[in-house]
Nucleic acid binder design. Structure first.
Length: 661
DNA sequence: GCGACAAGCTTG
DNA sequence: GTACGAGCTTGTCGCT
């Protein structure tokens, strides 16, 4: 069935007959017959790289079905069509139509590990999924969220294949050889060629094993009953793959000139500061970006006694510490400024410029299996930690607060701009934001009477806290800042020490505030204790109100540190995971509604409790109220009302405006 | 030259 | 003596 490639690579491992390469029309027809006879199918692309939105494409497709006559229970094939090795392979055009029909079948179930990536690659070939999706990476996350979800890791951990990464090692060696032959660094080589120069023999059997593992993982998880144990979460996650795929494909338009300007500006500042810092360290090399250099300067040269230490018990050199010592040496404030500018240039401007497509559109990535708690994670770039407008910097560099018409001249959010229609009309981006969603989840679980009352009356929750806590402490309403920080810290069980550190107030003051807080909101502390006791009793596992599971084995550890950390983790997962589920379900609802109605509006992205939609001005008054209604329709939270507010941008992300409706 | 790790930064 | 998630970047260190 398979032919050994003569050059440049020859597979010398015994391959059982269940895995084969498809390089002739006859073999392809044979494979098609198997696929058509089985509605449950596995697929996996091998590609030239990860940038599906730019220059990377699929160079071959792995396929599989379940077959009891094969030793592993899976029969798999590899169809190469864009390898650049000079070996015989199929022409993509001859298989495009049959594959398109196969993927479009409405009754099929398609299985893939990290389905979203393969769906992006599919779309480049015009292959759309007509049936149901099954992502084994998501299944792996739900089967045991404390293990890594990478395919080969799970083939080892869940299936017991201790040799699972052997093929990957061989592929890796071959890539090293090819990179060397082209005199390129491995990372550069991979970004340019991926696996397209790897011999079909090696790449093909590697891919067949991936398909094989994926099929075996599916069998294991479904024998266990995974998709039926968590039906609501599972169905939503699988539909979310389609939603996220569309969102990532649409992307965010970037003001490239502005990013380049910002890069140049911060670069100038860095050069100027370097020129000032360098002479202060005559005779020795000093890199302001090096923690080691800074550590020896502060603690060995200046002999400052260490106040804060890192995890590994090293004296800390973080920004707070530098600020505290700023008066001790003229270099310290300069180093602080250097680090601020360096952070912006390297982390924000450079990373955006590297990841644009040919039209100045940024296609980030959202992972629905990224976290143990059920939140989405975001990468390339991470939209969830994009720096806010910095008011201190606005004052320092423009002389005015943002509120008073000043602006942060180093704002990176300014780079995210609204799109325009072909006729030049601006398409507003509506940003819908869940109001106090984590506190509402908390109020739902704890049934706290004060919080519930405040939410029912539509009160400002922090103002209510100011009054309630103030009543105990005396002397009028308590500071709003403390009320906000404490509320924020509730989902991860912040202590008085944490409050004092974050609010920069003395510890005894923080302790008094916290004591008064939990005096009024006693149902929260009571609920937490009862929750942990119940979870311990039930084997250190629980599910949130939507059925999403979380295992926290450390909850019964003898080690105080581990146990406390597990307590915080479990409570955080309960609250944050519940809030996250709302956003994820709403995304699917909105996506479905927009597709059904065909309004000119597009889901763009999401950041925790925010959903972004580019909405043509002609349908704003229809789409926004409907989307708001879809986001708020969660009767299971009764009596607590779920509400969303709407802002919009018609210029850039830094200039968010209230949407009058 | 590469991978792994530590530390630091920014967010909700 | 402390904090929850997450992602990304630089510098450092050991290995080849």
């Amino acid at each position: 069935m398979y032919q050994i490639a003569a050059f440049p690579y020859r597979v010398d491992w015994p391959i059982d007959g269940s895995k084969s390469l498809v390089t002739t029309g006859e073999q392809f027809e044979g494979m098609l017959r198997h696929l058509q006879a089985n509605q449950v199918r596995i697929f996996d692309h091998e590609t030239t790289g990860l940038q599906w939105f730019k220059d990377d494409y699929s160079c071959g497709l792995g396929l599989g079905v379940f077959d009891s006559t094969s030793p592993s229970g899976v029969r798999s094939w590899y169809v190469p069509y864009r390898h650049q090795t000079g070996e015989g392979q199929l022409d993509i055009e001859t298989i495009r139509d049959p594959m398109r029909r196969l993927f479009a079948e409405p009754d099929a179930v398609w299985i893939a590990h990290n389905f979203k990536f393969d769906e992006h690659m599919n779309r480049r070939e015009g292959w759309h999924i007509g049936g149901r999706r099954y992502c084994t990476q998501m299944a792996a996350r739900l089967y045991d969220e404390n293990k890594p979800v990478a395919l080969k890791k799970r083939a080892y951990l869940d299936l017991g294949h201790y040799w699972a990464s052997e093929w990957e090692k061989r592929l890796d060696e071959e890539v090293n050889r090819l990179a060397k032959a082209r005199k390129m660094k491995k990372t550069d080589y991979m970004a340019t060629y991926g696996y397209c120069e790897v011999a079909i023999d090696l790449c093909g059997f590697y891919c067949c094993y991936d398909v094989d593992f994926t099929g075996q993982l599916f069998s294991l998880y479904e024998r266990w009953g995974l998709s039926s144990h968590f039906p609501r979460v599972w169905n939503n996650e699988m539909q979310l793959i389609h939603t996220l795929c569309d969102m990532e494909e649409y992307g965010c338009l970037i003001d490239v000139d502005y990013v380049q300007y910002l890069k140049a500006e911060t670069g100038k500042v860095i050069d100027r500061l370097s020129g000032m810092i360098e002479p202060m360290f005559r005779g020795s090399t000093f890199n302001p970006g090096s923690d080691a250099d800074l550590r020896s300067f502060l603690y060995e040269h200046l002999m400052i006694p260490a106040t804060t230490r890192t995890k590994k018990n090293q004296p800390s050199v973080e920004a707070d510490v530098l600020a505290a010592f700023a008066h001790l040496h003229p270099a310290i404030p300069l180093i602080m400024e250097w680090r601020e500018a360096d952070k912006i240039r390297t982390t924000w401007t450079d990373s955006i410029l590297k990841k644009l497509d040919h039209n100045g559109v940024l296609h980030g990535s959202l992972q629905n299996e990224g976290t143990t708690s059920g939140r989405l994670s975001s990468s390339s770039p991470n939209l969830q930690n994009f720096a806010n407008e910095n008011d201190d910097r606005a004052v320092r560099l423009t002389g005015r607060h943002i509120e008073d018409g000043g602006h942060d001249p180093w704002s990176i959010r300014r780079a995210f701009i609204a799109r325009k229609r072909p006729d030049g009309v601006v398409i507003p981006r509506v940003i819908l934001d869940y109001e106090q969603i984590e506190l509402k989840a908390l109020a739902y679980y704890t049934k706290d009477p004060i919080m519930t009352d405040a939410f029912l009356k539509g009160e400002d929750i922090h103002q209510r806290t100011q009054v309630e806590v103030g009543a105990i402490l005396g002397g009028g309403p308590a500071p709003r800042r403390l009320a906000k920080i404490t509320a924020f810290g509730l989902s991860y069980c912040m202590s008085a020490k944490g409050l004092s550190r974050q609010a920069k107030i003395p510890e005894d003051e923080a302790e008094r505030f916290m004591e008064a807080f939990f005096g009024r909101y006693s149902s929260i502390s009571n609920y937490r204790e009862a929750f942990w006791a119940k979870v311990r009793f039930e084997g250190c596992q629980f599910a949130n109100m939507f059925g999403r599971p979380r295992r926290v084995p450390g909850l019964t550890s003898d080690d105080n540190k581990i146990r406390k950390s597990s307590e915080r983790q479990s409570f955080g997962a309960l609250i944050q995971g519940t809030a996250a589920q709302l956003t994820k379900e709403s995304l699917v609802r909105i996506h479905k509604w927009l597709r059904e109605t065909g309004y000119p509006a597009v889901l763009v992205s999401t950041v925790h409790d925010e959903i972004w939609i580019d909405c043509d001005p002609s349908c704003l008054t229809v789409v926004v109220p409907k989307v708001k209604q879809l986001m708020e329709d969660y009767p299971e939270f009764a009596p607590i009302p779920i509400t969303a507010s709407a802002d919009y941008i018609d210029t850039n992300w830094a200039e968010k405006k209230k949407l009058p409706l």
